[in-house]
């Protein structure tokens, strides 16, 4: 195809997206669109399955049967969401095994927040309330993104995820209405998860490399800083309901902006964790790679069995 033809196709493609038309797997798309989508969707999928690990640690220790089933169902949903997203990614011509390979080799990224440890039961509350809260802010606009399979996966994810944040908030509420020891546990979890949750919404706009292009493709509807402000503005009043203190001495209401002003985020810490030097990066990867490798013989056995069964069926038919 000549460059002229490609430019014309791209123009036509961009017009379609501007008209809010969806792009489907077999449609022509610029190579950069495909690559950007593979990167973002797989990063999102990886975040779901790595995100299972900190919470998964607490399934066996949940304090009541009711909490145990809720947590199990939640972590299971994350596996489901990873699965929907990997499937969406596969429509772009890359297999799930290749995507795993990218995760396991460290080539692909996932949300850095899961590199922090879940130390107490209150962390299950804080993760649901803050981490899922921040995730929802990121995800809801994606239900309307330009790539059809991604948008459909996100609609399913958002529908199912609606119970996750409530589950977390309810855990916090119960702790805050409990004994002083329980309330202290809740405050400690908020202290540890607050700043990583703000970082989760991505680097500041002036440092964000993909924003402009992603906006055009509707992979992003708001900038990182806008999303972060939205998250803070909606979360601070929720902390008030709990009677907890946000660990930021600079946090105050700005009457003029009708928003909260907040303190400086430690971006050095953010980049350190992104680059693989967070408290749990190695552990998380070890768990993922280990599960995959321990599963190899199982997956092979299932394929071998399927082939034998197929062969027997064909022989019978003859």
């Amino acid at each position: 195809m000549s460059e002229e033809q490609i430019r014309s196709l791209e123009r036509h493609f961009n017009e379609r997206i501007a008209r809010d038309e969806k792009i489907e797997p077999k449609d022509w798309m610029p190579e950069k669109y495909r690559q950007t989508h593979i990167r973002q969707i797989s990063q999102h999928a990886h975040s779901e399955i790595v995100g299972m690990l900190p919470e998964g640690n607490w399934i066996t220790r949940a304090p009541s049967l009711r909490r145990k089933v809720a947590l199990l169902a939640k972590v299971q949903d994350e596996a489901g969401h990873g699965l929907y997203l990997y499937s969406a990614c596969e429509t772009l011509g890359i297999s799930r095994d290749e995507l795993y390979e990218q995760l396991h080799s460290g080539k692909a990224k996932y949300s850095s927040i899961f590199n922090y440890p879940a130390l107490t039961w209150a962390d299950m509350g804080a993760i649901g309330w803050l981490v899922d809260g921040a995730a929802i802010i990121n995800q809801v606009p994606l239900c309307n993104t330009s790539y059809g399979p991604y948008a459909r996966a996100m609609i399913r994810v958002c529908k199912e995820e609606s119970f996750h944040q409530r589950q977390g908030f309810e855990i916090m509420l119960k702790l805050c209405n409990g004994t002083p020891e329980q309330k202290a546990m809740a405050q400690d979890a908020l202290n540890r998860w607050w700043w990583p949750s703000l970082m989760m919404l991505g680097p500041t706009d002036d440092k964000s490399v993909h924003t402009e292009q992603s906006m055009k493709w509707k992979l992003k509807r708001k900038t990182n800083d806008e999303l972060r402000q939205q998250f803070i503005d909606q979360t601070v009043p929720q902390a008030d309901v709990l009677g907890l203190t946000i660990p930021d001495s600079d946090l105050k209401w700005n009457e003029e902006r009708q928003s909260y002003d907040f303190g400086e985020i430690d971006w050095d810490e953010f980049w350190q964790v992104v680059k693989g030097h967070g408290p749990m990066n190695k552990e998380r990867m070890k768990a993922r790679v280990g599960a995959w490798e321990r599963g190899t013989w199982v997956r092979e056995a299932a394929m071998a069995y399927a082939k034998k069964k197929q062969a027997r069926k064909e022989k019978q038919a003859v």
Partner: peptide
């Protein structure tokens, strides 16, 4: 079975084992 959640041989099997665990706790 709850110990396995997140550590299954692949996602589909992980989800299936968790379903069994959820049934049992119910």
């Amino acid at each position: 079975l709850g110990e396995l959640c997140g550590h299954g041989p692949n996602l589909e099997t992980d989800i299936a084992c968790t379903n069994i665990s959820l049934d049992l706790f119910g």
